[in-house]
Design a protein around this nucleic acid. Structure first.
Length: 558
DNA sequence: TCTGAAGGCGCC
DNA sequence: AAAGGGCGCCTTCAGA
């Protein structure tokens, strides 16, 4: 059963449909929270334009839903997917559903957002944003038709369900927040940087000491090491041969200033990205609530907006501390992307190499390359499209040992160069590129070279797209499975009073759990990984091993 | 004074 | 160590 919720001219309307999509009832809804509360026990699939607009209000009222369809996210998938290319949705000209942008929240706003006024906010010019242009019931009907007529035996439907579950999880994780100790954070900062300066403009003492030392060593008393051009000039004047100030390039050089300079860069980065200002803006009441953006990346990965949640430096993960009596269960999928490639290509040899635990060791054991480091480098090269360097040199060895796996990514790259689209396991398709394989006579040799390079670059994108995108699908299925298992384990307890997801990082999750349930949670996360593998790859004997740790600080994991 | 690009670096 | 994919966010800097 489905219940579509739509908001038209500030009125909320509910449309109930049976599993065949036949409308059973349609009525206005006075009190939306009460309506959902009343109907959720039947576990309908709630259908709405945007989870981020509806669900936070429910969570605030301590109401969870089990299942939904997020029409905005699903629309994007269906419009682009090769599996639904002949649907009305894909063939229609761009409309208001294409122009919907994810909501954003200002850094100072700590509580979950409730912004009904943004419901009809249209990003592109020229659209009539009258309420009826976003008829959720009509859109749902179009989406159902697109799925029903799609090729690929249910893959798209699985993708839409996983994507929508992700939207629910993102809202719940933001609501619950990542347990964060401001005291521990401050200790880490004070340790590394010195005490917080009382004046906003002043540098912390240890940073200032390094600046003084660098200025002294370069004989540049006014130097601002934060300015690349300023710094480059000072380095050159001091006789240091370099034309960039990137850390890894500086590492190659030998000069007394290099060490303090690298140290300075490390600390300055910590200070500006995750220092006290960040703490003030993003941590409230012992929780970090980043703004997750499901589907924010073309490959299907999540993005975040504000807070930089997906870039939390390892340096400050010691500030992530569970509540008293609770634990963090940290799980990450080992070598996820290469395993995804092995499974997608059904390359028996590579699947076999991964079956005993360490995929890279398995590749060495097969005799393809000499060392684990080489195996890793070669795999990264295959997935990213390395052409030169060590990685590029190792690739042919990999291609000989695992022809099917390598062929899959090579084909994806060639398709991209021709301007064709490529698709993930469940049917998320890449944007269309330009055909760079044929060019007309009028181009100069330089223009042709530039065109070829654009093509190769797009080919590297499509090559990576199928692997990164399928890994993202695996992760969504994994999390959705974890979530529903946690719901069962919670036995009706409220979200934050039973084990719940608090963080997600591409191939890693963190669950906040009462100590006595931590082991159970660890086991359930493992079961969910197996389920995700089956959802994507059926009974193919591919394994997705996890590293699971039960810890009192995030940085105690691995 | 504001804005967007560039350089740089954090994460996967 | 260092060439390839995807991001967000900080500072500086040039141009309007």
């Amino acid at each position: 059963m489905f219940i579509v919720l739509s908001r038209i001219n500030h009125e909320i309307r509910a449309t109930r449909l049976d599993s065949n999509g036949v409308v059973q009832e349609q009525r206005p809804v006075e009190d939306f929270v009460a309506f959902v509360t009343e109907n959720e026990p039947g576990h309908p699939r709630w259908v709405w334009n945007d989870t981020a607009e509806w669900y936070p209000q429910l969570l605030k009222a301590r109401v969870r839903v089990q299942r939904c369809f997020d029409l905005r996210l699903c629309h994007t998938i269906l419009r682009n997917s090769a599996l639904s290319a002949s649907s009305a949705i894909a063939l229609a000209p761009a409309g208001p559903w294409d122009a919907l942008a994810p909501n954003v929240v200002s850094p100072s706003e700590a509580s979950p957002r409730v912004e009904p006024s943004t419901l009809f906010e249209i990003d592109a010019p020229g659209f009539d944003d009258g309420g009826d242009s976003l008829d959720a019931t009509a859109e749902f009907e179009l989406q159902r038709a697109a799925v029903a007529n799609s090729t690929g035996s249910g893959r798209l439907l699985r993708l839409l369900a996983a994507e929508s579950a992700g939207a629910l999880i993102a809202a719940e994780m933001r609501f619950a927040g990542l347990p964060w100790s401001a005291e521990a954070h401050d200790r880490i900062l004070t340790d590394l940087l010195g005490p917080r300066p009382t004046m906003e403009s002043a540098r912390p003492s240890k940073v200032q000491d390094l600046v003084d030392e660098i200025r002294e060593l370069l004989d540049a008393p006014q130097l601002n090491p934060e300015s690349p051009s300023d710094l480059l000039r000072a380095l050159n004047v001091a006789g240091i041969q370099t034309n960039s100030t990137r850390a890894w390039e500086l590492k190659q050089l030998r000069h007394p200033v290099i060490s303090p300079l690298l140290h300075y860069k490390k600390l300055a980065r910590l200070l500006t990205a995750n220092g006290w200002n960040w703490l003030d803006s993003w941590v409230h009441d012992g929780r970090f609530r980043p703004d997750y953006v499901p589907g924010g990346v073309v490959t299907g990965r999540w993005a975040t907006s504000g807070g930089g949640a997906l870039q939390l430096p390892h340096l400050i993960r010691g500030a992530v501390i569970p509540d008293p009596g609770w634990k963090l269960v940290v799980a990450d999928a080992s070598q996820l992307e290469p395993r995804i490639l092995a499974a997608m290509s059904a390359d028996r040899g590579m699947v076999e190499a991964g079956s005993s635990g360490d995929l890279y060791e398995g590749i060495v054991a097969s005799g393809a390359v000499e060392t684990r480091a080489h195996a890793k480098l070669a795999m990264l090269g295959a997935m990213y499209g390395a052409t030169t360097g060590e990685s590029g040199r190792l690739m042919p060895k990999l291609a000989r040992a695992y022809p099917r796996a390598i062929q899959l990514v090579e084909d994806a790259a060639r398709a991209g160069e021709r301007g064709e689209i490529v698709s993930t396991q469940l049917g998320r398709s890449s944007p269309r590129g330009e055909d760079t394989g044929t060019y007309d006579e009028s181009l100069t040799p330089a223009e042709r070279a530039a065109l070829r390079e654009r093509g190769r670059s797009w080919g590297r994108f499509t090559r990576n797209f199928i692997v990164q995108g399928t890994a993202a699908e695996w992760a969504l299925c994994w999390m959705a499975s974890i979530r529903s298992r946690l719901v069962s384990l919670g036995e009706g307890k409220w979200l934050t009073e039973s084990p719940h997801l608090v963080f997600f990082l591409h191939d890693e999750v963190v669950v906040h759990a009462p100590e006595e349930l931590a082991e159970t949670v660890a086991a359930l996360i493992d079961d969910a990984a197996h389920e995700a593998g089956r959802l994507l790859f059926g009974e193919l004997p591919v394994t997705f091993p996890l590293t699971v740790a039960i810890v009192d600080r995030y940085d105690d994991a691995k």
